[in-house]
Computed example of a mutant assay.
Amino acid sequence: MPQHQAATALAIDDAASQITIIVRRGGLLARLGHDHLVLVKNLQGSVDPRSQRARLQFRLDEMEVDPAALRLAAGLQPQPSAEAIAGTRRNMLTRTLDAEHYPLVQLQAERQGEELALQITLHGVTRKLRVPATIISDGHKVQAEGSFTILQSDYGITPFAVMGGALAVQDQLELHYHLLAHE
Protein backbone atom coordinates (compact mmCIF):
# COMPACT_ATOMS: atom_id res chain seq x y z
CA MET A 1 0.00 0.00 0.00
CA PRO A 2 1.45 3.42 -0.91
CA GLN A 3 2.54 5.55 2.00
CA HIS A 4 0.88 8.72 0.59
CA GLN A 5 -2.47 8.41 -1.10
CA ALA A 6 -3.25 10.91 -3.81
CA ALA A 7 -5.34 13.78 -2.50
CA THR A 8 -8.45 14.60 -4.44
CA ALA A 9 -8.95 18.01 -5.97
CA LEU A 10 -10.59 20.55 -3.69
CA ALA A 11 -13.40 22.65 -5.15
CA ILE A 12 -13.35 26.43 -4.95
CA ASP A 13 -16.12 27.63 -2.62
CA ASP A 14 -17.55 30.62 -4.48
CA ALA A 15 -19.69 31.69 -1.51
CA ALA A 16 -16.62 31.85 0.77
CA SER A 17 -14.21 33.24 -1.84
CA GLN A 18 -13.87 36.78 -3.11
CA ILE A 19 -11.91 38.56 -5.81
CA THR A 20 -12.34 42.31 -6.04
CA ILE A 21 -10.85 44.68 -8.58
CA ILE A 22 -10.38 48.35 -7.80
CA VAL A 23 -10.54 50.54 -10.91
CA ARG A 24 -9.20 54.07 -10.34
CA ARG A 25 -10.20 57.17 -12.28
CA GLY A 26 -7.67 59.29 -14.11
CA GLY A 27 -7.26 62.17 -16.52
CA LEU A 28 -7.45 65.95 -16.06
CA LEU A 29 -11.13 65.71 -15.10
CA ALA A 30 -10.76 62.69 -12.79
CA ARG A 31 -12.57 64.54 -9.99
CA LEU A 32 -15.77 64.31 -12.07
CA GLY A 33 -15.62 60.51 -12.22
CA HIS A 34 -15.71 57.67 -9.70
CA ASP A 35 -13.31 54.97 -8.63
CA HIS A 36 -15.05 51.61 -9.01
CA LEU A 37 -15.02 48.24 -7.29
CA VAL A 38 -15.76 45.17 -9.39
CA LEU A 39 -16.70 41.90 -7.69
CA VAL A 40 -15.99 38.57 -9.38
CA LYS A 41 -19.05 36.33 -9.14
CA ASN A 42 -19.48 32.60 -9.80
CA LEU A 43 -15.81 31.75 -9.48
CA GLN A 44 -15.24 28.16 -10.59
CA GLY A 45 -12.20 25.98 -10.18
CA SER A 46 -10.22 23.57 -8.10
CA VAL A 47 -7.01 23.18 -6.15
CA ASP A 48 -4.80 20.08 -6.21
CA PRO A 49 -3.12 20.07 -2.78
CA ARG A 50 -0.61 17.42 -3.86
CA SER A 51 0.82 19.42 -6.75
CA GLN A 52 -0.01 22.78 -5.09
CA ARG A 53 -1.64 23.96 -8.29
CA ALA A 54 -4.99 25.59 -8.92
CA ARG A 55 -7.17 26.37 -11.93
CA LEU A 56 -9.86 29.04 -11.76
CA GLN A 57 -12.16 30.80 -14.17
CA PHE A 58 -15.02 33.28 -14.20
CA ARG A 59 -17.24 34.99 -16.76
CA LEU A 60 -16.82 38.73 -17.28
CA ASP A 61 -20.57 39.23 -17.77
CA GLU A 62 -21.24 37.82 -14.29
CA MET A 63 -19.12 40.41 -12.48
CA GLU A 64 -20.91 42.95 -10.29
CA VAL A 65 -20.00 46.65 -10.41
CA ASP A 66 -19.94 48.76 -7.24
CA PRO A 67 -21.74 46.63 -4.63
CA ALA A 68 -22.43 49.22 -1.91
CA ALA A 69 -21.14 47.29 1.14
CA LEU A 70 -17.85 46.37 -0.55
CA ARG A 71 -17.33 49.93 -1.85
CA LEU A 72 -17.82 51.25 1.66
CA ALA A 73 -15.44 48.66 3.15
CA ALA A 74 -12.82 49.65 0.55
CA GLY A 75 -13.22 53.33 1.44
CA LEU A 76 -14.75 54.26 -1.92
CA GLN A 77 -17.35 56.99 -1.45
CA PRO A 78 -19.81 58.25 -2.47
CA GLN A 79 -21.85 55.42 -3.94
CA PRO A 80 -22.55 56.08 -7.64
CA SER A 81 -26.17 56.16 -8.79
CA ALA A 82 -27.79 53.03 -10.23
CA GLU A 83 -27.69 54.73 -13.65
CA ALA A 84 -23.94 55.44 -13.35
CA ILE A 85 -23.27 51.85 -12.26
CA ALA A 86 -25.26 50.47 -15.22
CA GLY A 87 -23.33 52.74 -17.61
CA THR A 88 -20.00 51.70 -16.10
CA ARG A 89 -20.91 48.01 -16.40
CA ARG A 90 -22.04 48.44 -20.01
CA ASN A 91 -18.87 50.33 -20.99
CA MET A 92 -16.68 47.84 -19.14
CA LEU A 93 -18.19 44.80 -20.86
CA THR A 94 -18.61 46.22 -24.37
CA ARG A 95 -16.12 49.03 -24.98
CA THR A 96 -13.24 47.91 -22.77
CA LEU A 97 -13.26 44.14 -22.20
CA ASP A 98 -15.17 43.00 -25.32
CA ALA A 99 -16.85 40.32 -23.19
CA GLU A 100 -18.80 39.05 -26.19
CA HIS A 101 -15.59 37.84 -27.87
CA TYR A 102 -13.56 37.15 -24.69
CA PRO A 103 -16.14 36.02 -22.11
CA LEU A 104 -13.82 34.11 -19.74
CA VAL A 105 -10.91 34.97 -17.50
CA GLN A 106 -8.79 31.94 -16.75
CA LEU A 107 -6.15 31.64 -14.04
CA GLN A 108 -3.63 28.96 -13.28
CA ALA A 109 -1.57 29.16 -10.13
CA GLU A 110 1.26 27.17 -8.60
CA ARG A 111 2.46 27.71 -5.07
CA GLN A 112 6.12 28.67 -4.85
CA GLY A 113 6.91 29.37 -1.21
CA GLU A 114 5.04 32.48 -0.11
CA GLU A 115 4.15 33.42 -3.68
CA LEU A 116 1.97 32.15 -6.45
CA ALA A 117 3.32 31.73 -9.96
CA LEU A 118 0.20 32.96 -11.70
CA GLN A 119 -0.83 32.72 -15.32
CA ILE A 120 -3.75 34.95 -16.30
CA THR A 121 -5.59 34.72 -19.61
CA LEU A 122 -7.69 37.83 -20.20
CA HIS A 123 -8.92 39.36 -23.45
CA GLY A 124 -7.22 36.59 -25.42
CA VAL A 125 -3.77 37.36 -23.93
CA THR A 126 -1.90 35.19 -21.43
CA ARG A 127 0.64 36.70 -19.03
CA LYS A 128 2.72 35.17 -16.26
CA LEU A 129 3.50 36.93 -13.01
CA ARG A 130 4.42 36.20 -9.41
CA VAL A 131 2.11 37.47 -6.71
CA PRO A 132 2.35 37.46 -2.92
CA ALA A 133 0.10 34.99 -1.12
CA THR A 134 -0.72 33.95 2.40
CA ILE A 135 -1.63 30.28 2.12
CA ILE A 136 -3.01 27.97 4.78
CA SER A 137 -3.53 24.32 3.89
CA ASP A 138 -4.33 21.18 5.84
CA GLY A 139 -4.94 18.78 2.95
CA HIS A 140 -8.73 19.04 3.35
CA LYS A 141 -8.98 22.75 2.66
CA VAL A 142 -6.79 25.50 1.27
CA GLN A 143 -7.11 29.24 1.91
CA ALA A 144 -5.14 31.81 -0.04
CA GLU A 145 -5.22 35.58 0.11
CA GLY A 146 -3.25 38.54 -1.15
CA SER A 147 -3.22 41.59 -3.38
CA PHE A 148 -1.45 42.55 -6.59
CA THR A 149 -1.74 44.87 -9.58
CA ILE A 150 -1.93 44.35 -13.31
CA LEU A 151 -1.93 46.73 -16.26
CA GLN A 152 -4.84 46.51 -18.66
CA SER A 153 -2.50 47.37 -21.53
CA ASP A 154 -0.47 44.20 -20.82
CA TYR A 155 -3.55 42.27 -21.98
CA GLY A 156 -4.19 44.33 -25.10
CA ILE A 157 -6.92 46.35 -23.38
CA THR A 158 -7.20 50.09 -23.90
CA PRO A 159 -8.47 51.65 -20.65
CA PHE A 160 -11.81 53.43 -21.04
CA ALA A 161 -11.57 57.17 -21.74
CA VAL A 162 -13.85 59.96 -22.93
CA MET A 163 -13.30 63.58 -23.95
CA GLY A 164 -9.91 62.82 -25.46
CA GLY A 165 -8.73 61.19 -22.22
CA ALA A 166 -9.69 64.09 -19.95
CA LEU A 167 -11.86 61.60 -18.02
CA ALA A 168 -10.37 58.12 -18.06
CA VAL A 169 -9.72 54.90 -16.22
CA GLN A 170 -6.14 54.32 -15.06
CA ASP A 171 -4.25 51.48 -16.73
CA GLN A 172 -3.36 49.84 -13.41
CA LEU A 173 -5.96 47.66 -11.68
CA GLU A 174 -5.73 46.57 -8.02
CA LEU A 175 -6.78 42.98 -7.37
CA HIS A 176 -7.52 41.63 -3.90
CA TYR A 177 -8.34 37.97 -3.37
CA HIS A 178 -9.44 35.62 -0.62
CA LEU A 179 -10.00 32.09 -1.87
CA LEU A 180 -11.24 28.97 -0.11
CA ALA A 181 -11.20 25.46 -1.57
CA HIS A 182 -12.35 22.36 0.30
CA GLU A 183 -13.61 18.81 -0.15
Score class of each variant (00 low, 15 high):
residue 8 T to G: 14
residue 2 P to Q: 13
residue 104 L to P: 07
residue 170 Q to A: 06
residue 14 D to L: 09
residue 88 T to M: 04
residue 160 F to E: 07
residue 77 Q to P: 02
residue 5 Q to P: 13
residue 35 D to A: 05
residue 13 D to F: 04
residue 25 R to S: 14
residue 64 E to Y: 08
residue 94 T to D: 11
residue 133 A to H: 06
residue 54 A to C: 15
residue 44 Q to G: 11
residue 112 Q to C: 10
residue 76 L to F: 03
residue 174 E to F: 06
residue 9 A to L: 12
residue 99 A to K: 00
residue 182 H to S: 15
residue 141 K to I: 09
residue 56 L to G: 04
residue 40 V to D: 08
residue 55 R to N: 11
residue 116 L to C: 11
residue 38 V to Q: 07
residue 110 E to Q: 15
residue 135 I to L: 12
residue 122 L to H: 11
residue 97 L to Q: 01
residue 141 K to L: 05
residue 157 I to D: 03
residue 83 E to D: 13
residue 105 V to D: 04
residue 49 P to T: 01
residue 145 E to D: 05
residue 148 F to D: 02
residue 126 T to A: 01
residue 101 H to F: 08
residue 45 G to P: 08
residue 127 R to L: 10
residue 138 D to W: 05
residue 110 E to W: 08
residue 115 E to W: 06
residue 93 L to T: 01
residue 20 T to G: 00
residue 29 L to K: 06
residue 98 D to N: 06
residue 5 Q to W: 13
residue 73 A to M: 07
residue 77 Q to I: 05
residue 46 S to G: 13
residue 43 L to C: 14
residue 15 A to I: 13
residue 80 P to I: 03
residue 5 Q to E: 14
residue 145 E to I: 00
residue 174 E to T: 15
residue 41 K to A: 09
residue 125 V to I: 02
residue 1 M to D: 12
residue 24 R to W: 02
residue 162 V to H: 02
residue 105 V to H: 04
